[in-house]
């Protein structure tokens, strides 16, 4: 653990019509860290990712990556700087094959299609989609599409990886495998921020957890402390608290 801050989110606000999606959120992520952000439905997790990656312009506040202000930059510029993300609502290139999907991503770091393909196949092996490489992406099931999201993000060779509910809908055995893979990637120096609904999905993986609620930070700490935090338990009340917080 440790290292300097790679991502700093400072007092970010975002309003959609009457809904305040983010109400002054500040988060720091250190290089090499494994951070989890959890929160109930509509608490602003995806919006936070959209702000960081340039899809949504914050009303107020600032985002900097590696000491550089990236607020207001375009998504493709931010991706080029080394931030990769997955989409909660998966966005495969439906009419391309799995391999072609990942080649598109790998082309950001490789000049020729041949090199990109080699890199893409390597990544596909990592995420376990190698056998499906010639399948049209539209034909994958949801779990596979989520892995494809991950593969595309990994093929960018990012420094910071933002994962929006990649574990949701996976079977426990699959989640275990996913965590193992993410561990490996993290150990190669990639910083990982993982958004999940439930604590269980990130426990045993995240070193630190941030809880969002109604667009602001409710709590922050080690996973086992978070599960016992009375404010967090309150926030989750009515949404099957015990199950969601179960470590």
């Amino acid at each position: 653990m440790g290292g300097r801050e790679i991502l700093v989110v400072e007092n970010v606000w975002k309003r959609f019509g009457g809904i305040v999606a983010l109400a002054g959120v500040s988060i720091e992520v250190r290089e090499g860290e494994r951070l989890a952000i959890i929160g109930p439905n509509g608490s602003g997790k995806t919006t936070l990712f959209n702000v960081i990656t340039g899809y949504v312009k914050p009303d107020r506040g600032r985002v900097s990556f590696d000491g550089q202000d990236i607020t207001g930059k375009k998504p493709h510029q931010i991706a080029r700087l080394g931030i990769a993300r997955t989409f909660q609502i998966v966005k495969p290139f439906a009419n391309l094959t799995v391999e072609e999907n990942v080649v598109v991503a790998a082309l950001s770091r490789n000049r020729s299609v041949e090199e990109a393909r080699r890199h893409a196949l390597h990544v596909l092996e990592l995420v376990g989609l190698y056998d499906k490489r010639n399948v049209r992406a539209a034909m994958l099931n949801l779990a596979e599409k989520k892995r494809l999201e991950l593969a595309k993000a990994l093929a960018l060779n990012p420094r910071l990886l933002l994962l929006d509910e990649v574990a949701a809908g996976l079977r426990p055995s699959e989640i275990k495998e996913l965590k193992k893979l993410l561990y490996k990637i993290n150990s190669e120096g990639v910083t990982i921020v993982m958004v999940e609904h439930v604590l269980r999905a990130v426990s045993g993986f995240a070193e630190r957890v941030v809880v969002l609620h109604h667009g602001s930070k409710l709590a922050e700490g080690r996973p086992e402390d978070i599960a016992k935090d009375p404010r967090v338990v309150d926030a989750y009340l009515g949404s099957l608290a015990s199950q969601l917080l179960e470590v």
Binding site: T53, Y55, K74, P75, H76, Q77, A79, R80, A84, R85, F87, K91, P92, F93, A94, N95, L96, E100, V103, V104, A105, L107, S108, V113, A116, K152, A153, L156
Partner: peptide
């Protein structure tokens, strides 16, 4: 590759460092 990515999903293409 990049043109077809844009055709399929512009937002997803941008996340892969493509300037549509």
């Amino acid at each position: 590759y990049k043109l077809q990515a844009i055709r399929e999903d512009e937002d997803a293409a941008m996340a892969l460092a493509i300037d549509p």
